[in-house]
């Protein structure tokens, strides 16, 4: 089947209000920064198709509201997601602490099947850096995430981040379910992999066709 080499993944984008997650994703999908001519009206839900080693990958990028008041709603957003990008602002220590809370939550809710990427955004403001690279790197390693330094303004590190995330998601998808579900090119969903065959309609069918 043609769809056997294609994957579709849900990726949530988490980050506090001003860390630039919208700019990051718009840079990735539209390759524009603070442009007046974005072709999209919105950056809340975006699709991106990639081709990684001959495999077609479709990313559905879900932006989430980063305000503190909506924090409790996180689990509704990241349910069934295959990957998460946690964005912090390298000049803002608080935003990095917020990332840590999310990582804990994600690991608790989704276990190890979710691929995490931590993005230290705004590296164009290097001189005001408040979060050290070593600290962020070692933290990321300790939680099984990958750390990237990005700049939506200068278009640094963003492509690499998404490609790496996609590769890791493919690995997990291919190793965890060699079931048929995967071969359909659907996102993996272990919860619904249980196949219950409804006997009655099956019976009915054979009767009809045979007759």
């Amino acid at each position: 089947m043609a769809g056997s080499r294609s994957h579709s993944f849900k990726v949530v984008l988490l980050g506090e209000g001003c860390v630039g997650k919208t700019s990051l994703v718009l840079r990735y999908v539209e390759n524009k920064f603070n442009d007046k001519h974005f072709s999209t009206l919105q950056a809340s839900f975006l699709n991106k198709k990639l081709n990684i080693a001959g495999k077609r990958v479709s990313l559905a990028i879900w932006d989430t509201a980063g305000q503190e008041r909506f924090h409790a709603l996180g689990p509704i957003y990241y349910r069934d997601s295959n990957g998460a990008i946690l964005v912090y602002d390298v000049t803002d220590e608080d935003s990095f602490q917020k990332v840590k809370t999310w990582v804990k939550e994600l690991r608790k809710m989704l276990g190890n099947d979710v691929c995490l990427c931590i993005a230290g955004n705004k590296i164009d403001l290097e001189k005001d850096r408040a979060v050290s690279l070593e600290e962020a790197d070692s933290y990321a390693t300790s939680v099984g995430a990958k750390h990237f330094l990005t700049s939506a303004k200068l278009n640094r590190g963003i492509e690499e981040l998404f490609v790496d995330l996609a590769k890791r998601m493919i690995e997990i998808a291919e190793s965890s379910d060699e079931h048929r579900v995967n071969s359909l090119g659907r996102g993996s969903n272990p919860r619904r992999n249980v196949v219950i065959v409804d006997d009655e309609p099956q019976q009915q069918k054979t009767g009809c066709c045979g007759g």
């Binding site: 997650k21 999209t40 009206l41 919105q42 950056a43 809340s44 509201a65």
Partner: peptide
């Protein structure tokens, strides 16, 4: 949701993100 995103865009001049959409 499309209508909401449209009016958000009318009130600001960049694409609406979830930070504006959910409220």
């Amino acid at each position: 949701s499309y209508h909401i995103l449209n009016f958000i865009q009318l009130c600001q001049d960049r694409p609406a993100s979830a930070d504006e959409f959910l409220p």
